[in-house]
Design a protein around this nucleic acid. Structure first.
Length: 257
DNA sequence: TCATTAAATTGTT
DNA sequence: AACAATTTAATGA
């Protein structure tokens, strides 16, 4: 009775070990599986979300359709990642599309099972909070793209987001081509290649054929906030004070030069 | 197991 | 975008 069948995706799921034994057995007995070929959607837009979706293998991009009709890629998910919890929690319909960049093998946890865990297991809730917080930070930083953020920061952020679920597993090896990274952060493959080489020169990763190996996760994270132009970084807001702007005797002093 | 070929991916311009 | 070089995967002897 106590022999719980451990699904093959459990080790890298990030949340399986947080379940009680009887919770594990329910999930293991109710989880479903599906394979989605490259280029097809993982979940039908506009229809009620029926499952919490886990990526056993493959790579997918999240897109929304803008008013101009063109799909806008805003995030991605790789092997070990799970998505759909937001839509499940509000018991809503899919408002975004997940499109398979490569063939994806999915694990599907039924909605009722997910909501059941959500109501009873505090450790499971902590996992979801951490994941939602990660995604919130990811998108907050995306607002800075093209402004004070360089391509290296963009690539570093996308890499961290993708390999986070399986950090530690595979020693940080991530099977993602440079072209696929380009799709996820809307950069040309060439620019991604350039960014990769700079990151490799800094020692944060090792380039491999068809993937990368993360060597230093902390330094990779530091790249997310590095300014693109070191020269123009140290510019004070005001270098000179004019008497017309700051009248004398108000307590302010003017910095020389 | 090895050699040959095609396909995929990378690095460069 | 185009090109050459490199790596992997597939095939058959």
């Amino acid at each position: 009775m106590n022999d719980i069948k451990t699904p093959i995706w459990a080790a890298r799921s990030g949340w399986w070990e947080r379940l009680q034994p009887h919770e594990k057995s329910r999930v293991a007995s109710e989880v479903g599986y599906q394979t989605v070929p490259a280029g097809e959607v993982l979940q039908p837009l506009g229809e009620p979300a029926l499952h919490w979706v886990g990526m056993m293998s493959g790579l997918a991009k999240f897109t929304v359709t803008t008013t101009s009709g063109k799909p806008l890629v805003y995030s991605g998910v790789g092997a070990g990642g799970w998505f759909g919890e937001g839509t499940l929690m509000r018991r809503g319909v899919w408002r975004y599309q997940a499109v398979a960049i490569r063939t994806c093998e999915l694990a599907l946890v039924p909605r009722e099972t997910f909501l059941w865990l959500l109501e009873r297991n505090i450790l499971f809730n902590h996992f979801l909070l951490q994941q939602l917080n990660d995604r919130l930070e990811l998108m907050t930083l995306q607002a800075l793209d093209g402004q004070q953020i360089g391509a290296e920061s963009n690539v570093a952020r996308t890499l961290r987001h993708l390999f986070h679920p399986l950090a530690g597993a595979n020693g940080g090896a991530l099977r993602v081509t440079q072209s696929e990274i380009g799709q996820l952060c809307r950069l040309s493959r060439q620019r991604v290649n350039q960014a990769f080489q700079r990151l490799e020169a800094d020692g944060v990763l090792q380039l491999r054929y068809g993937g990368v190996e993360i060597l230093d996760a902390e330094r990779l994270r530091a790249w997310e906030f590095r300014a693109p132009h070191p020269k123009a970084a140290a510019k004070p807001i005001a270098t000179r004070c004019s008497p017309a702007v700051v009248p004398p005797g108000n307590g302010y002093t003017c910095a020389p030069g």
